[in-house]
Each structure stands twice: as C-alpha cells, then as structure tokens.
Simulated assay, not measured.
Amino acid sequence: MRMNSITKLNVLTLVFLSFLLASCQDKNQKNTENQNQPEFQNKGHELVYEMVQKVGDFSSLADKKSVEYTYTYVTADGGTDISQEKYLFDGEYSYGRYTTHERTLPQFEGDIEQGYNGTEYWLKHNGEVITDEEALTRVKFNRPTNYYWFTMMQKLLDPGINYEYIGERPINDKEYHIVKISFDSPDDKPTDTYQLYINKETSIVDQFLFTVVDFGVEETPYLMLLDYEKIDGLLIPTKRKYKASTWNADLSDEGWITVNWTDIKFDTGITKDDFEK
C-alpha cells in the first residue's frame, strides 16, 4: 500500500515536471519569436512582414549562400535577352553571361559578361575587358537590378524603407491590401516607389506597381504580375510580366514585357573568385 502511494506520487511529480518543462520551452520559443519580430511602423509594415514570412525571409535565402539560374527577358516587340545569372547573397555579388542580348548592349556581337565583385562593376565581350563608360553605366544598372528583383520580397524588410497602408480593394474576385513602399535617400535623390497588392487570402504579393527613376519612369508606373513556384522551401516569383499602368492599376494598351527565371539552383558552391573579371 505504501509503495503504491509513493509510485503515484512519483508519477504525479513527473507529469508536473514535464508540464513545467513544456511550458518553459513554449515561453522561450515565443520570446525568441518576439525578439526576431521588428517594431512595426504601421499596418502596412506588419503586412509586409507577414508576407515575407510566407515566401521565406532573408535569413532563409542567405542560408542557401548562392543561386544560379537562367534569366529570359522578352520585350513587347520580341527583343530578347537571355543570360546565365549567378549571385552570392553575402555581399550581393552578381554575374551574368548574356548569350542573347538584343536589348542589353546590342552593339556587341557574341557573348558578353557582366559582373560585380563587391567593389567593381566590369564588362567583357568575347573574353576581352570593355572599359567604355557608357557601356559600364548599363552594367551598373543591370547587376544590382537583376539581383534586387530576385531578392526583392526579402529585401522589403531592409532598413531605410517607409511603409504606408493605402487601404483595401477587390480585383478579379480577389481581395487585396494595398501598401505603398518608399525608400530613404541620404543625398535627396529621387528613389523608386512600389505599391504592393497583397492577397488577403494567401498573404503574398500577386502584383505591384513600380517606378524606374533611372530611366525616367516616375509619373506613369509599370504594373507587374507575378506567378510563384516553390523551390527548396521558398516561394519564388519565377514568372513575371509587366506593362505601363496608372497608379490606380489601370493597364495601358501596350504589349506585355515578360521575365522568366528557370533552372534555379541554390548553394552551387560558387565563391567570390567566380565574380572577378
């Protein structure tokens, strides 16, 4: 009888300790999540944060170290660029080998290579280094732009970003939150503006408006439509098309420009040496 009482007491003690341990672990997990969660500027900031958690945050992307893929860009009149892109996420190193470049530096016949090695932008044509400043200006636009488009969703939580919640709107039987994105400019130069349409049901961006200040696209934005593909645990917007629009997302009569990313491979073993000219 005494042994039964002691056994019951031990069992109750073990149950209590197990409950206490589980409670502490749950509390620690919640504390960690709260530490990782930023202090939100407003509702727009919070919606963007939730979207990034859905597609995969930057730490999830950075853990993959690098990416290689085929980039295909086709203008409304059929002008085509095809490049083999490589990026290192640490340092934002960027490389592209263009086997077709009817839109980008078409004056060079044959393959061209563009690179950013962390300090310098460079260009090569058929293996020879090109130093023409006008051509290098295009490289200085292409390299960070291509990298940014690939990492855009994750980088929407970078420092120096301002969020404004515009409101709600139905489009094609779907309900959207609309969030305006603008960027701090230390030298007061004009910067691009984005307007995200975040699907209420999925929490991802189905489309967004954007400007391209470097090419004079400011008053009349483009509207970009996105289709996602799940690759190695991340939702990647691999199929895109865009055309001129209004800030109310009313499309122009112009043809679509399409951008597709295919054969995406992460953590390919490339190093900083692969980005030297």
Rank of each mutant, 00 (worst) to 15 (best):
N142P: 01
Y69P: 04
R103A: 11
F150R: 07
E120V: 11
T13L: 12
I112Y: 14
F266M: 00
E39P: 05
Q25H: 13
G160S: 05
I166A: 11
D214N: 12
K189Y: 14
E39D: 07
H177W: 02
T193Q: 07
Y116E: 01
Y73P: 00
E102C: 03
E120Q: 11
G79W: 04
A244D: 09
Y71I: 06
Q53C: 09
E175Q: 12
Q35F: 06
R2A: 08
A244Y: 15
Y49S: 10
N42F: 06
P190T: 03
K27P: 01
Y121G: 07
I236L: 10
D263T: 00
K124E: 15
G269S: 03
K64N: 02
Y49P: 05
D184K: 03
R103N: 14
G44P: 08
T100K: 14
E68H: 07
Q195M: 15
I257R: 13
S203I: 10
D81Q: 08
T13N: 05
D77W: 09
R169A: 12
L234S: 03
V212F: 12
F266Y: 02
Q207P: 04
F58K: 08
F16S: 02
Y69L: 13
T271Y: 08
T131M: 10
L14F: 12
D232P: 03
Y93F: 09
D187A: 10
G96M: 08
T72C: 06
S94A: 09
S59W: 12
K277H: 13
T32Y: 09
E134T: 07
W247R: 10
K155P: 01
L225E: 15
N4M: 02
K54P: 11
K180T: 02
G96N: 08
N162A: 04
H45N: 00
L61N: 00
K180D: 08
N31T: 08
T70A: 13
V55M: 14
N36P: 00
E46V: 01
F108L: 04
S66W: 14
A244I: 07
P106D: 05
D273I: 00
A62S: 14
D250F: 10
G160T: 11
E39N: 09
L123I: 10
E92A: 13
L17G: 04
I166S: 11
E229F: 00
E168H: 11
D158F: 05
T7W: 09
L225Y: 09
G216M: 06
I236H: 01
P38T: 07
P221W: 00
R97H: 05
F266P: 06
E109H: 10
D263I: 07
V129Y: 10
K30I: 09
A22S: 14
A22W: 02
P170V: 11
T268P: 01
F40E: 03
K155R: 11
T220A: 08
I171M: 07
H177P: 05
W261G: 05
V74R: 10
E134F: 09
F183W: 00
W256G: 00
S182P: 06
S23E: 14
L226S: 03
Y93E: 04
E276S: 11
Y147H: 12
V52I: 10
T13Y: 03
H125A: 14
N42R: 08
A22L: 13
G79N: 04
K86F: 05
E109I: 10
E92G: 01
P190D: 05
V205R: 08
P38L: 06
